[in-house]
Write a protein that binds this DNA or RNA. Structure first.
Lengths: 201, 201
DNA sequence: TCGTTATCTGGAAACTCTTTCCGGAACTAT
DNA sequence: ATAGTTCCGGAAAGAGTTTCCAGATAACGA
């Protein structure tokens, strides 16, 4: 806790190259965790994950000192994947279509990964950085898509990228037995407001 | 699960009058739990609650066989309080004002009680009944307020009470470090849509 | 290639909560 | 008051997480 080795997360920052077996194990753990989380939920016992990854518990806790660190890492990784999808979509479609498709992608992520909503609302300070991370990674992505769509006249901007991002994230968070398209419907309502609304009053 | 004794929760239905000390203890536990939950979060150790309530752990588990049962009971109790507030507001204000005030009340409940969002998104099947309970209790309350406001011409209904209820509940669920009025702002956006929107297309 | 050194690994043990259990206390009805 | 239930309290069992460290393994210089 002094000066040189205060690194918590595993991603970014390379104060010192990791040993190759360590890197390989981290990879296995993240992959296994992703699988187990989506199968048995984020509360699945750690043992299940380490077994699937083929490592001991000690290895898990060496790289992810707290259970929440593992969850955080998995989610951040999925956020990254979502961000990475934006440029490809922008390149392959009309601005309006690209925006819609990306929102779909994002919606699917939020709706599918129950762990994301759970982590966000858990109240555990360990996850406090997550919205910031999401904003930082996805904000620019959405903004550029939004700008392009606005420029091409297909959308009239009334809310910022951040507000929209959060609103979609919240509206699409899964709730027990709600109609499967509820989230999408509500997002459509918002986007309708975006694209055709005269400002009220 | 057959015919006569399949009661899980503690509230409503009286197959047999509870002993007075039992009822008193249940009351203490619910009160203590409410306090502790809002102080230390819903993950606070059970010991803390039983100590505050002045009972042993055994007593807690006699009345709330699972930890989630206690959380559920506390939340249901707060939902009840919210529902009970509607008639008074309707009696004391103009329809439009009553609606706004009640939405404020509901918003505050969702925004303040982090445990509610946490339970809802936890993925634990124990909480599956909660949205239904919320709908059942708050749906009629909101609907009557909404009807009154519509009748008096202050609001043009475009979504049902259920959709609105869920949307508000989701938008106002607290997220780490978001502007304090974000939820209220987004709800306003929705309500603006409600009150002045020409239906798009 | 080999020795040296820092880093990583596995699993046993310590901990922290939750949940079960049951002897004895407390309430209720008669 | 007494019998008959129903409850209470807290010890102990379970379930999961986190710590710890002796031994294994990679990295690197000679």
């Amino acid at each position: 806790m002094s000066d040189n080795t205060a690194d918590f997360g595993v991603r970014d920052r390379a104060p010192r190259r990791l040993r190759t077996d360590a890197r390989r194990n981290i990879e296995s753990l993240l992959e296994a965790a992703k699988t187990v989380f989506s199968t048995a939920g984020v509360d699945a016992p750690a043992k299940e994950i380490t077994d699937l990854a083929g490592v001991g518990v000690g290895t898990l806790y060496r790289h992810f000192p707290q259970r929440s660190d593992l969850i955080k890492a998995v989610i951040e990784r999925e956020i990254d994947a979502c961000a990475d999808a934006a440029p490809a979509l922008a390149a392959a479609h009309e601005p309006g279509v690209a925006l819609a498709k990306w929102l779909d992608r994002f919606t699917a992520f939020v709706a599918t990964k129950r762990g994301f909503a759970a982590a966000l609302h858990s109240g555990d300070p360990a996850f406090d950085g997550l919205p910031g991370y999401l904003m930082q990674k996805l904000g620019p992505a959405l903004e550029s898509l939004l700008d392009a769509a606005t420029a091409s006249g297909e959308v009239r901007a009334r809310v910022g990228a951040q507000d929209l991002l959060y609103a979609v994230a919240k509206l699409c968070a899964p709730m027990p037995d709600e109609e499967p398209d509820y989230g999408r419907r509500m997002v459509a309502l918002l986007v309708d407001g975006l694209r055709s609304g005269e400002s009220p009053h």
